[in-house]
């Protein structure tokens, strides 16, 4: 099979389109690249969906944690502690078994045990907790003068939040949030290595990489390919978030704009 044919057969293998049987025997480099790249679809799907949804929830949580009323503050604090204080790996296991239990209660919950939905929920809650802590930190470091100036102009209530506090919070939090995005993207590889089963060998990039490594007993080809893909996508994230950062700080003179530093935190 030529490389073009391989790409046609396997480029969408991870979502179940194309050739059903995985290649066997002598694996070519082309097959490595195509299948691992195909698996990236899952990683991108998880990362994009979790980040988009998590962003909104994180804002709510951060505001809750910064709230005066204990009724709002305590639940947010506990939620953030629960998800930041425990390993994501254990959270995946826990959620999967919880979903299994729910499934036996009512057929309504059937979809939850599939990785596409169940793992996404876990990643969404997890990134919401981590991002909320970042946003909360930013909320607390908003310059006092900005808020006072808003008060002096008679901007109050929701309008003050919408036009002064929230944009400043985003501006302050954005470099850290970029790292959180990278970090979450890397964490998506955990999904199929925890409890969530791989259906008909439709796995993510790490699943295929370890598949090759298991079959050929040679880790020196598939893992560097995987690393290359991840470094590539990480650069894309840095670029995208850098654009947003530029827009957030468009009022500042060029030299004063904070640069996003690539500093992915650590694993969770």
């Amino acid at each position: 099979m030529s490389c073009i044919e391989t790409i046609q057969a396997y480029a969408l293998r991870s979502i179940g389109l194309g050739e059903r049987l995985l290649p066997r025997g002598d694996y070519t480099l082309c097959e490595h690249f195509t299948l691992i790249g195909s698996g990236m679809i899952w990683n991108v799907y998880f990362a994009v969906m979790a980040l988009l949804l998590g962003f909104f929830f994180a804002n709510v949580l951060a505001l809750g944690k910064a709230a005066q009323s204990a009724w709002l503050r305590k639940p947010s604090e506990w939620f953030i502690f629960l998800f930041r204080g425990s390993p994501l790996f254990i959270q995946f296991f826990f959620a999967y078994f919880l979903f299994l239990r729910l499934k036996s209660v009512s057929p309504m919950f059937d979809g939850l045990t599939a990785a596409g939905l169940g793992a996404l929920i876990v990643l969404f809650l997890n990134t919401a907790a981590y991002s909320a802590e970042i946003f909360y930190g930013a909320l607390r470091s908003i310059p006092k003068g900005d808020v006072e100036a808003a008060d002096a102009y008679g901007i109050t209530g929701f309008r003050r939040f919408r036009r002064i506090i929230w944009p400043t919070m985003l501006r302050l939090a954005w470099p850290a949030y970029t790292n959180e995005a990278i970090f979450l993207f890397h964490a998506t590889t955990l999904v199929f290595f925890s409890a969530f089963p791989v259906h008909q060998q439709k796995g993510d990039s790490l699943y295929y990489a370890s598949y090759f490594a298991d079959k050929t007993f040679n880790p020196f080809v598939p893992y560097p390919i995987l690393a290359m893909y991840f470094i590539l996508f990480t650069l894309v994230i840095v670029w995208l978030f850098g654009m947003v950062n530029k827009r957030l700080n468009r009022h500042l003179p060029q030299a004063q704009r904070p640069r996003v530093r690539y500093r992915p935190n650590l694993l969770r």
Partner: peptide
């Protein structure tokens, strides 16, 4: 390199390597 790539990939890689 270690920081740019998912850690779990490193774990799986190094054990065999």
């Amino acid at each position: 390199i270690v920081r740019g790539v998912p850690d779990i990939a490193f774990f799986l890689f190094f054990v065999i390597a």
